[in-house]
Design a protein around this nucleic acid. Sequence first.
DNA 1: AGTCGCATGGTACGTCGTACGAGTCAATCG
DNA 2: CGATTGACTCGTACGACGTACCATGCGACT
Lengths: 210, 210
Amino acid sequence: MQKPRSEPPLSRERIVATAVELLDAQGVDGLTMRRLADRLGSGVMSLYWHVDNKEDVFDLALDSVLEYGGPPQLVEPRDWRGEVVHMLEDWRASMLRHPWSASLLPRRALGANILSRLELLSKTLSRAGVADADLNVAIWSLWNYVMGATISRANFDLSDDGRADTQQRLTGLSERYPTIERSRLLLDNDWDGAFRKGLGFLLDGLSPRQ
Amino acid sequence: MQKPRSEPPLSRERIVATAVELLDAQGVDGLTMRRLADRLGSGVMSLYWHVDNKEDVFDLALDSVLEYGGPPQLVEPRDWRGEVVHMLEDWRASMLRHPWSASLLPRRALGANILSRLELLSKTLSRAGVADADLNVAIWSLWNYVMGATISRANFDLSDDGRADTQQRLTGLSERYPTIERSRLLLDNDWDGAFRKGLGFLLDGLSPRQ
DNA sequence: AGTCGCATGGTACGTCGTACGAGTCAATCG
DNA sequence: CGATTGACTCGTACGACGTACCATGCGACT
C-alpha cells in the first residue's frame, strides 16, 4: 500500500510555480500559506523547509515572472531603439499577464531578473551613444515610465469591474473635471497604443542630440 | 465625576488623520484597526460607524495625502512648463513624505485629489498647445513617469536600511552586472536631480513641435 | 543496528478584520 | 412628562491568518 502517488515531491520551484498560479487566480490577498499547501497537496509547515516565509514567496513569485528571453533575431543588432522598445514592451506584457505583480513590485527589492533587464538597458543605451552623464537619468526615466504605465494599467484592470462602473462614476463627476471628461482620458481604451506612443516621445527626448 | 475629557469625539477626519500618523510611523503593515482605535482612545468597533472597513481607511488616508494647493503666485501664468513641473514635483514630494502611499497607490481607485491633479494637468497641457490627438498620451506619460519615479524611490528608501546593505549586495553582483556597476546606477543618490532631468527630457519629447 | 541529514506535517499561539447585538445619551414627539 | 427614536460607542466572539515548536519518517552511511 503506497501513497496515491499523486504529488511529486515539494521543491522551491514547484512552490513558486504554484504560488504564481494561485496569484493569477485569486490575486494578492488570495495567496495564503494554507491555500498554497492545499494546492500542493502538502502540509502547511512543509513549505517552510523550502521557503523562509510568506514574503519570500512573494519575492520569488515576482522575480519568476519577470524573466526576459532577449530580443528576437529579427531585430537588426544596430537598432538600439528597437531593442529597447522590445524589451520594455515585453516587460510590460509580462507584468500585465500577472496583474498582481504590479501591486507587489513597489514593496519588493530588486530581484535578479530585474537587474538583468536594467543591465541590458544600460548596455544598449550606452552603445547607442547616450552620454555617460545622461545614462543613469535615461535608464531611470525609461524604467519609471514602464513601471508607472504598467501599474496604472493593471490598477485599472482591477478596479474597473466591467467598465460600466467607471462610466457611471465619471458622468457623475464630469462637471467637476471637464477637461478629463472632454478628452475621455479615463475611457480611452487604447492602452497599448498610448504606451508605445509615449515611449516614443520619451525616447525622442532622450536620444543623443545630433 | 466626568470622563478625563481627554479625547474629542470620533469623526471620519480624526480617524483618517490618525491613520496617516500611524502609517507614517509604522508603515503599511503597522496599521491595524486595533492600533488605530488605541491611538484614538476608542473601542475598535466604534471605528466601523464612521468607516466601512479597513480598505476604506486606506483609500481615505491615501487621498488625504495627495491634496494639491496649486502653483505659487510667482509662476508666470503663461509658463506652462513651470506649472507642470511644479505640480508634478509637489506630487512626488507629497508621496515621498509618506512612503507608504507609493505602495498603496497601485491597488486603489482614483480618489478625488488624484482626479483634480489629472484635470489640472490636462488643462495646462491643453492650453499649452499640445495637439488633442496627443493629449491623452502626454498626460499618461507624465503621470506614469511620476508614479514610476516615486514608487522606485520610495521602494529604495524602504529596502535600503542604511545603504551598506545595497553596497554589499552590489559588489557581490558586480561581475554579473558590469554596466550597472560601472555607472553606479544603484548607488547614485541624486534622486531629485535625476527626477527633474528626466522630466525635462520627457517634456522635450512631448513639446509641441515647431 | 545505530546514527544522521533531509524532509514532512500536526498542534498551538498570538494577531488580525469584523459580524452581532447590547449599551449610552440627547433630541423629538405624544 | 414618559416613550420613542436615532446617532453613536464598544465588549464579545468567530474564523482565518502566519508561523514557532516539536515529533515523525526515511534513505544513506558507519
